[in-house]
């Protein structure tokens, strides 16, 4: 083993630092779109129309049962055939958001269902209008189970972004692959990339726990 510190500091770190921006951007955008997409899928799945809820349920099942990498390739190669030309980064963000929408949809649904039925009955007995029931009673109570789960998906999305390197998005894994094949030295680049993911995952785990505590304290009590 020969680890070269000069190489690490002069070549690897600056280039990975640039690429880290792309990773963070892709993570944040995908997470925001996944939050929104999950909400839409959840509303469709709990729709009163049988057909709509059935189709939404099957779509969610199909998205969950197929690999994200194949979905990324699918969008990357198939969208241009329909005349939709998007930059790789946008296609990648789209694929990650769609995939995670199917997962967050289940989180929302489970959260709303975890509120006891008695709360609905009490609200009805007190004659509170439906939108107020959601706003003041149901949603605040469904947040404690939802927020940690969504936080976990933020970390999961972060760890899924290296897949974008397969379609030549210049994120951190792509940068370290490039460094590896350019200098034929994989050790430093890949190890630093691994440490980067580990450190940021651990930091966000601490962050999620803090948010969880805050939600339990402020919203519930």
């Amino acid at each position: 083993m020969d680890w070269q510190w000069d190489f690490t500091f002069e070549v690897v770190l600056p280039r990975l630092w640039e690429a880290a921006g792309v990773t963070v951007y892709a993570t944040v955008m995908s997470f925001l779109f996944a939050l929104l997409g999950g909400l839409i899928l959840m509303l469709l799945k709990t729709s009163r129309f049988r057909l709509v809820s059935f189709v939404a349920g099957e779509v969610i099942e199909f998205i969950r049962a197929t690999p994200l990498l194949v979905q990324i390739f699918f969008l990357f190669f198939v969208l241009p055939q329909f005349g939709i030309l998007l930059p790789p980064l946008t296609t990648g963000i789209l694929a990650i958001s769609i995939y995670n929408s199917a997962l967050t949809a289940e989180v929302y649904r489970a959260g709303l269902q975890s509120v006891p039925r008695g709360q609905w009955e009490a609200a009805k007995a007190l004659n509170i209008p439906t939108h107020r029931v959601y706003q003041r009673i149901i949603i605040p109570q469904s947040l404690p189970p939802i927020i940690p789960a969504l936080g976990n998906y933020l970390v999961a999305i972060f760890k899924e972004t290296p897949l974008l390197s397969f379609v030549a998005v210049g994120e951190i894994m792509h940068a370290s692959k490039l460094i590896g094949s350019q200098y034929y030295r994989f050790t430093e680049a890949v190890t630093i990339a691994g440490i980067f993911f580990l450190v940021l995952s651990l930091i966000s785990a601490v962050g999620i726990r803090a948010v969880e505590r805050y939600v339990n304290k402020r919203i519930l009590h």
């Binding site: 760890k159 692959k177 994989f186 890949v190 691994g194 995952s201 651990l202």
Partner: peptide, 17 residues
Amino acid sequence: GTSLLVILFWFFFVLPE
């Protein structure tokens, strides 16, 4: 805490070192 892709790369390209 680490990404699977990074782990795979590490096992295949770094462990030989």
